[in-house]
Amino acid sequence: MLNIKDLYASVEGNQILKGLSLSVKAGEVHAIMGPNGSGKSTLSKVVAGHPQYTVDRGSIDYEMSGGVKSLIGMAPETRAREGIFLAFQYPVEIPGVPTSGFLRASYNAVCRHHGLEEMDPMDFDGFVREKMKILEMDDKYIDRAVNVDFSGGEKKRNEILQMAVLNPRLALLDETDSGLDVDSMKIVAHGVNTLRNKRNAMIVITHYQRLLNYIKPDVVHVLYQGRIVKTAGPELALEVEERGYDWLIK
């Protein structure tokens, strides 16, 4: 589904990703761990198409509606409509834009792209409320401006709500667990698991193996200084939790 080869990417002249390769197939969950500043968020932004980041070398290929295409140079909204979803490490507050209208604009933009019928506000309201139930979110959030006056944990939950609404093919979850209390993490993980199936894939960025008890990965990678330095099964997360990164870096 996603094939990244020898990727070099930079932001404001700083080379952050230095020869990263990663291949994700439909039905798989990949976890990415790694020390602070190693380039995990950078990778997620590059895949989502942040205009500030430039790809200097390498390729990012993605299997989409018209076959395998390169994501390089593709507008972020096109990637999103083709099923790429980024749950932000730091979700952005958008004052004045109500969550309900935002979710519907988003959902309908994706529908239009695929030639599907848009949902009217009434139907959509019911649809969103169903999704909110899965995430045990209070109805009041829907009337607030996007992420404004949301607590840190509520923002993370709101990211997964958007994921549930858009039902992406490839979801990148950037530290969705940080800032969540134990119970919230279970709820969010449950929400993510209900979306998991054979046709989609997930890349879960985390610092803690705890999350991986709930969202079981098929593969665990360690990212260090812009490259993947180790790839193994779920047991790698346990080992990192116990021993840190030193043994992998040296």
Binding site: A48, E77, R79, A80, L86, F88, I94, A105, S106, L166
Partner: peptide
């Protein structure tokens, strides 16, 4: 803010 909206499919 723009990027956030774009990542949700909004042109």
């Amino acid at each position: 803010e723009l990027f956030y909206l774009q990542t949700r499919g909004i042109a």
